[in-house]
């Protein structure tokens, strides 16, 4: 999908890089031997990036193993090894959305409150529109005050069509209508917005399941993509979020938002390791163009480049 320039991505990640590299470089230069102190400092670095205790331990165990097997003595080599271990955890492969396969391609966007779902949809819509696609948005957040208006403004900016209903209407019906409209109007993509919900609210999670089920009544193969939006500032709770949303609707990928701040979003390493859910897109700002493809290699490179 987004094969354009990665200016913003680089700008976004460069902050991450500066923070991480600066510390990592300083840290390694401060050691003449590979010892427990060095390992503890690397541990602190990873935990401070929200990688989490479990994934951090995994990374450090693997790192120490490699050091032992290869009989490495020079601390300056540790940086490369660390990078390699994280890359291995993140896995290889391309995560581009393949829109050419089906029409309409239905993308449903879910997540807890305040992570940036509506903004993400607006940005995806704008990019797809630029690529000449016919995009329809489904205003499925019928709960939060003014959420429909927020999406409508984004639809205007992006030049996308919107299917909306009254506040407090059934979101499943809105989603159904949007897919129906897409079929009738021969649209390329449907983006379904949903209300933010905490993953612990059983009823709200059931509602999500229902939206998916109802969409499938109109188009059995849909949604072709269910994206979970994660705020990069979120800590360990993100694993819980991924786990529970995945149980209910089978998440196909993550969107990591707010990477333009200083948050590192290290939790996606743990999520990939534990649940094997890849990051597909990243959000790096509030402007229309501030969304980019996620490349695991770039991500790791950016952390240590």
């Amino acid at each position: 999908m987004f094969k354009k320039a990665f200016e913003k991505l680089k700008a976004g990640l460069s902050k991450t890089r500066k923070n991480f590299l600066g510390k990592l470089g300083d840290l390694i230069r401060g050691h003449t031997t590979i010892d427990d102190d060095l390992m503890e400092e690397i541990e602190e670095l990873l935990i401070s990036a929200d990688v989490g205790v479990h994934a951090t331990m995994t990374i450090i165990d693997r790192l120490q193993n490699r050091i032992k097997i290869d009989k490495i003595k020079d601390p300056s080599l540790v940086e490369g090894l660390l990078k390699a271990e994280i890359a291995a955890l993140m896995g290889e492969g391309s995560y581009e959305l393949d829109l050419s396969a089906v029409k309409p391609y239905v993308i449903m966007v879910v997540g807890v409150n305040g992570v940036g779902k509506t903004t993400t949809i607006g940005k995806i819509a704008a990019r797809l529109k630029q690529e000449g696609k016919h995009v329809i948005l489904a205003a499925g957040d019928t709960f939060r005050a003014a959420a429909i208006d927020q999406l409508e403004i984004w639809a205007d900016r992006a030049g996308a069509q919107i299917v909306r209903s009254q506040p407090e209407a059934d979101p499943a019906a809105v989603a159904f209508d949007a897919v129906d409209a897409a079929l009738a109007r021969n649209a390329d993509v449907v983006l379904i917005d949903t209300a933010g919900r905490l993953h612990t609210k059983v009823n709200l999670m059931k509602e999500l399941e229902k939206i998916k089920r109802v969409v499938q009544k109109r188009l059995p193969a849909a949604p072709h993509e269910i994206l979970l939006v994660l705020d990069a500032t979120t800590g360990q709770n993100a694993i819980q979020q991924a786990k529970l949303f995945n149980q209910v609707v089978d998440i196909s990928g993550l969107v990591l938002t707010k990477l333009d701040g200083t948050a590192k979003g290290g939790i996606v390493i743990a999520i990939k390791d534990e649940l094997n859910i890849p990051v597909k897109l990243i959000g790096v700002g509030e402007q229309v163009e501030d969304i980019q493809d996620f490349d695991p290699h770039d991500f790791v490179e950016a952390l240590f480049a």
């Binding site: 401070s48 990036a49 929200d50 500032t233 979120t234 800590g235 709770n237 993100a238 200083t262």
Partner: peptide, 8 residues
Amino acid sequence: DAMIGQEA
């Protein structure tokens, strides 16, 4: 946000 991580 109660869910915020190390960035807090």
